[in-house]
Every structure is written in C-alpha cells, then in structure tokens.
Amino acid sequence: MTTKILSVGLTAIALLAPIGCGKVYNSSSYDATTYGVSTGSAQFLAAKEIIVAKCASCHTRPSHAAWAGTSEEEYISQGLIKAQDLEGSVLYTKIQGNRTAIAGNMPFGGTPLTDAELDTMEAWINSITP
C-alpha cells in the first residue's frame, strides 16, 4: 500500500513538473520590457550607456524619457543621429563641449562629457553605415 501511494505521489509530481517550466518573469524581464533590450554593436552599446547616464536621467518629457530603450535604428529614424556625420547628428551637437563647430549646451548646468565619452559617441556615429 505504501509503495502504491509513493508511486502515485511521484507520478503526480512528475506530471506537474512541466507546469513550472517556462519563461521566468523577474526584474530583468520587466526591465527589458520597460527599457528595451540592449542589442547592437559594441560602439552603440557603449554610447547608449553614456546617453542613459548623462542624458536620459534628466530628460523626463515623453519624447526623451524613452532614450534608455531606444534602438540604434530609432535614433537614426528620429533624426537624432546621422550616420558618419557628427555635425548632422542633433544628439551629438547638443552636447556641451563637443568637437564640432556647433555649440551645444547639454548637460545643462552639468559637467560636460569627458574626452573619452566624446570619443565613444564619435566612434559610434562614425561606425554607422549610411
């Protein structure tokens, strides 16, 4: 009798095990839904880290708040970045102290991007194929 109960119990557990398998929804899943999945070239991902840290954290308007989840293609289609054209890239020319002839003023009241951060932004823009 005990063997039969044990056998039935193990069978029930075995049948229920697949129910627990599947996609796990945790904070990472929520973050990916909210902020986008970080995919793209190494240059884009490095530039995106700077944008998230130095730009998106202050810009709260709906048109800017989504920058953290914006893909490279969306930056281009929105006219924020122009492939291999620093002067034509609005996002880049808004950066205070950038190396173009166009004066910018961001981050407003904040510390300008470092040379290394500017190098990263430039490497990304210059790596995009038109």
Rank of each mutant, 00 (worst) to 15 (best):
T33I: 07
A56D: 13
W124A: 06
T93S: 04
A32I: 13
I128E: 15
I13T: 12
A32G: 03
E74L: 14
V24E: 15
Q96V: 00
G104C: 02
K82A: 09
I76F: 07
G79D: 05
N26K: 10
C21P: 00
S27M: 06
V52Q: 04
K54L: 05
K4R: 12
A65G: 11
N126H: 03
S27G: 12
I50A: 10
P18C: 11
S27I: 02
P18I: 08
N98G: 01
T100R: 04
S89W: 06
A14C: 10
D115M: 08
D85A: 02
M106V: 03
W124P: 01
C55K: 12
I76S: 03
S89N: 13
E49T: 12
T70P: 00
Y35A: 07
H64I: 01
G36W: 01
V24F: 00
A66K: 13
Y25V: 11
A42F: 00
G22F: 02
I51T: 11
T100P: 00
T11W: 10
Q43F: 00
M1P: 04
S7I: 09
E87K: 15
S63D: 04
K82E: 08
R99A: 02
Q43M: 01
A42D: 14
E122K: 06
F44E: 08
K54I: 08
I102V: 13
E73V: 13
L86K: 05
T111Q: 14
I5P: 08
E74N: 14
A65F: 12
H59K: 14
V37G: 01
S57Y: 12
E122G: 08
T114I: 08
Y25C: 01
L10R: 08
S41Q: 06
S89E: 04
D31R: 15
L45S: 05
D31V: 03
T60H: 05
M1F: 06
G20I: 08
S57M: 14
D31P: 02
G22T: 09
